[in-house]
Design a protein around this nucleic acid. Structure first.
Lengths: 222, 222
DNA sequence: ATTCATAGGATTGTCTACAATCTTTGTGAG
DNA sequence: CTCACAAAGATTGTAGACAATCCTATGAAT
């Protein structure tokens, strides 16, 4: 089989999760030598891993000066969300038209699971976030547009996740988000593309509002 | 100053234009050794150039097997246009809200130039295409969203250009496109965001239709 | 004390060589 | 003649060293 996981690939995924989880913080330097000491191997694979991180906009590289974990300004975060709103509401519209009935049934199952986890109040912040991403992920997959999937899940999501990990989750938000998810699935099930698009647009917009207030709070506290 | 153009960067831009212009055709192999013989230097910079081409989806790389120029299926091309329609109409909406009056005036100037070049019938296909891209480029810039600019101009446009270079330009399309551009600018100047968005959506949609019929013709001829 | 220049160290860019993997060509069996 | 298999060749992945560039700290001049 083609089980060829190159070392560069391994380091790349390791670094990706490290950045997303906040173990590597925005602005942190990524020296090739340091990575060699940390992950073993030679500089060549580390270099490749860094380049791939740059391709996903997780690090910024300047010639002869090295790479640093990206540090997004609030304006840039807004830009990202502005694009994400547009693309995900589009995905939701397409999903309403193209998802199979089986996929929609699975969406309902997923929401039931989330409901239970919230009711049990075991709704750990981490699980909530993962579950939320899972929901969005499936809708995007349902759009049946590979490029759309690439852009949202391959390029924008890591950045979004990176900032969500670092902000504490409100206790009020999850139940509300779940409700919004339920309405969206209903619209998809009804094959009402326009409504599904509108609801998703509002959902992400309010998600951004939530994130902004939270960032403002942390900014004020520090 | 920071005039540091690394060799990898140089080769990367060279290859980009070569691919976009069709000198390197879809499916063509890109061996590191071949690039060394062609551009000089060593394998390391060639490798980096190839990786950056992969990041822009211009080549596809499989581990231990090398890189080939991407060959898009008609379905993938439709996916790209589906996304492009959404993002560019969004950009147009934002441009109507955010462009300065000076920028709008420059747009009018640009359209006048295009008009003249068409009237003079010197309207070479190449110039037409470049001019068209220039128009779209300015509207996107006018959206004031850096991420949107990155996605459209940095990732999607090369692919679009690649396929446009390879399809001959219709003699009927340029005048029609110019008219559509004029209507769009009028909407932007009137700060009518909704109309501007709608017109851009239709414009790109008809551009896709034009491309599809042309591809179908060439398919039938071969 | 502040600012500028400079020298040293550290880091990245590039080169060459070697190991691991894939592709292709040639051979033989069915 | 076609297909499967194996060895040779070619290509990529990795390693280590050297060269070019940048960052930093030290010192001198204002």
């Amino acid at each position: 089989m083609n089980e060829s996981l190159t070392l560069a690939d391994k380091v790349f995924t390791e670094l990706t999760t490290a950045i997303v989880r906040g173990e590597l913080r925005p602005g942190d330097r990524l020296s090739e030598q340091t990575l060699v000491e940390r992950y073993g191997g030679s500089r060549a694979p580390m270099r490749e891993a860094i380049q791939r991180l740059e391709a996903r906009h997780l690090v910024k590289r300047v010639p002869h000066a090295g790479a640093r974990v990206v540090s997004l300004s609030l304006a840039e975060l807004r830009d990202i969300y502005e694009v994400r709103v547009e693309l995900e509401s589009m995905a939701c519209r397409l999903a309403a038209q193209r998802m199979t009935d089986a996929e929609i049934a699975e969406l309902y199952d997923l929401l039931r699971e989330h409901e239970e986890s919230i009711a049990a109040e075991q709704g750990l912040a981490y699980y909530q976030k993962a579950g939320d991403l899972d929901f969005h992920y499936r809708v995007i997959k349902g759009s049946r547009n590979s490029r759309l999937y690439q852009m949202l899940c391959g390029e924008l999501y890591h950045l979004v996740r990176m900032y969500r990990y670092q902000t504490s989750t409100s206790t009020k938000r999850p139940p509300q988000a779940l409700q919004e998810h339920q309405r969206i699935v209903e619209a998809i099930a009804a094959r009402d593309a326009e409504l599904a698009e509108l609801l998703m647009r509002r959902h992400i917009q309010s998600s951004l509002n939530n994130l902004e207030t939270r960032l403002a709070e942390e900014e004020g506290r520090s």
